[in-house]
Design a protein around this nucleic acid. Structure first.
Length: 494
RNA sequence: GGGCCCGUAGCUCAGCCCGGUAGAGCAGGCGGCUCUUAACCGCAAGGUCAGGGGUUCGAAUCCCCUCGGGCCCGCCA
């Protein structure tokens, strides 16, 4: 092969030698194997320096380190449940067996072993090996055992190497998976129906973002990848499904950074006959239960320590306008002209196109003055109408819409509206969006307006970026550390 | 888009300011060691210094371009 000329060759030669000797380097199965955790548990009732020869265990995993001692050897074996020390001696394996173990295996190989639980004189729970079998020979050497894979680029391009070298990375992605499962369980328990709606759509709408485009040969038309889940789910409310949610990927053809990925996971939920106040209660319950889940999944971690306390309901609320006025010292925000708002936004460091709608400047001011101050989970209520074209106007506060966002640690953890269900109003707002200049707009989805004409029940809707939710609950700084595989540029030559 | 930083052995890093022909640890090879845990001791091996161009007697090192990546700012949800 044209990759590493020495290490890979040596390892491949070992595999071929094993096969020549009648021992398959890539066998088919290893039945009866238990997690290494089971051995560690069995060791809890064994005194230091003692063994329990009445019990025997079969484990399998990846060799992380080998410490040979001539007539004995210690190996560290990793599996998903943790890590276990194997203690191999000539007494059990014979001269030949031990020599073979040391000669045939390398760090990175998958190894199966039978043995009895033993706690070493130094107190390490171990398995004293009576038999072993190579389960898959690793031709490529693993990263350095102590530092692991440090290069952030390599960790993304070859996530499997990051995972196999880093128990922390495995734990983080396992936590993500189980948190998503807990979220589903919570919503299912409230009577919501999980649905799947199309990824390929004629017009990507429901948010303001650049879509990816593709093409159907059969339909002979351009299709786009969805940028939001909102409009199909609301059609389902029209259809009478009443309580629905979807967890799925959305695609936005924009820049990548530590909080934005081109393909990410969104959860959107729609609830008929309820409003955004009901939704606040749902969200408090949801995050409360997810925080308890984190405490179970990452015991001993800083995230587990603080999550349950941070996310204890009720979460405080602030009013968008009052809080912005309080933090910025600006008075009578809603009475300001667009030009005045633009000047204020500019003095706060934002450079927004001059012809932006006034809501754009209010958003920027809020981001600058308020968001960084929202550390513990806080609901921001009743956004100015101009910031939010698609929410229902407030039932009693002129100039406001019924919308809240939930923030914690400066990260947005949820965005909810009392949904607009007046078809004529919806049509008017789509048209206003199309005529606004300079900005991304919501694409006009005429079939959606048509759907609303059949009558959508009053309803509240919620969107949560699952990736950011996992970041906030686990204390992870970059979105790239909670997404398994990301698109990358082509590798540089050499 | 602007600024700063990084790319050296499979992996983790030093060397770069101040130019003299590449260095350590881990992993791998050989030898030793029956309680180690980043095991230890000895010997030998391992390199397109991201790629290209320039300056120079001589470039990993200085200059320019390109590629890939990171952080900050801007833009974007």
């Amino acid at each position: 092969m044209d990759d590493d000329p020495t290490l890979v060759k040596e390892r491949r030669a070992k595999a071929l030698r094993l096969r020549a000797e009648g021992r398959e380097p890539f066998p088919w199965a290893f039945p009866g194997r238990v997690p290494t955790e089971a051995v560690a548990n069995a060791c809890k009732s064994i005194a230091q320096g003692e063994a329990d020869p009445t019990r025997s265990f079969r484990v399998a995993g990846r060799i992380r380190a080998v410490r040979g001692h001539g007539r004995s050897a210690f190996l560290d074996l990793d599996d998903l449940s943790g890590s276990l020390q194997l203690y191999a001696r000539v007494d059990e394996l014979g001269e030949n067996g031990l020599a073979r173990l040391l000669a045939d295996t390398d760090p990175g190989d998958l190894l199966g072993a039978d043995g009895v639980p033993v706690v070493t004189r130094r107190g390490e729970p171990s398995l004293r090996v009576t038999a072993f079998e190579i389960l898959a020979k690793a031709l490529n050497p693993p990263p350095e055992k102590y530092h692991g894979l440090q290069d952030p680029e390599e960790r993304i391009r070859r996530r499997y190497v990051d995972l196999l070298a880093s128990p922390e990375s495995r734990a983080r992605f396992r936590t993500r998976s189980l948190l998503t499962r807990a979220l589903r369980r919570h919503l299912d328990g409230l009577g919501f129906l999980e649905v799947e709606t199309p990824t390929l759509v004629p017009i990507a709408s429901g948010a303001a973002a650049q879509p990816f485009t593709t093409r159907s040969r059969y339909l002979d038309r351009e299709l786009q990848l969805r940028i939001a889940l909102e409009l199909p789910l609301k059609r389902l409310l029209v259809g009478g499904l009443e309580r629905v949610y979807e967890v799925g990927h959305v695609f936005r053809n924009e820049d990548m950074d530590s909080t934005h990925a081109p393909e990410f996971t969104m959860m959107e939920l729609y609830w008929a006959y309820a409003d955004y106040t009901d939704m606040r209660g749902l969200l408090e319950g949801l995050y409360g239960s997810l925080a308890l889940e984190v405490a179970k999944l990452l015991p001993g971690s800083p995230a587990a320590q603080e999550a349950p306390a941070r996310f204890r309901a009720p979460f405080p609320t602030v009013d968008f306008v009052e809080e912005l006025e309080r933090r910025s010292g600006i008075r009578d925000l809603l009475g300001k002209s667009r030009e005045e708002l633009r000047a204020l936004a500019r003095s706060a460091g934002a450079t927004v196109p001059e012809d932006s709608p006034p809501g754009k400047f209010l958003d920027k001011l809020f981001e600058h003055y308020v968001e960084p101050t929202l550390d513990r989970p806080t609901f921001v209520l009743d956004f100015p109408e101009s910031t939010t074209p698609l929410a229902k106007r407030h039932r009693s506060r002129p100039g406001r819409v019924e919308r809240f966002e939930l923030f914690a640690r400066g990260i947005e953890l949820g965005n909810a509206y009392t949904e607009l269900n007046d078809p004529d109003e919806q049509e008017r707002r789509f048209r206003e969006q199309l005529s606004s200049r300079g900005e991304d707009h919501y694409a006009y989805d005429s079939d959606f307006v048509e759907a609303l004409r059949f009558g959508m029940p009053p309803a509240t809707g919620l969107g949560i970026g699952i990736d950011r939710m996992v970041m906030a609950l686990t204390g992870t700084a970059s979105i790239k550390d909670v997404i398994l595989f990301l698109p990358t540029r082509e590798r540089s030559p050499g």
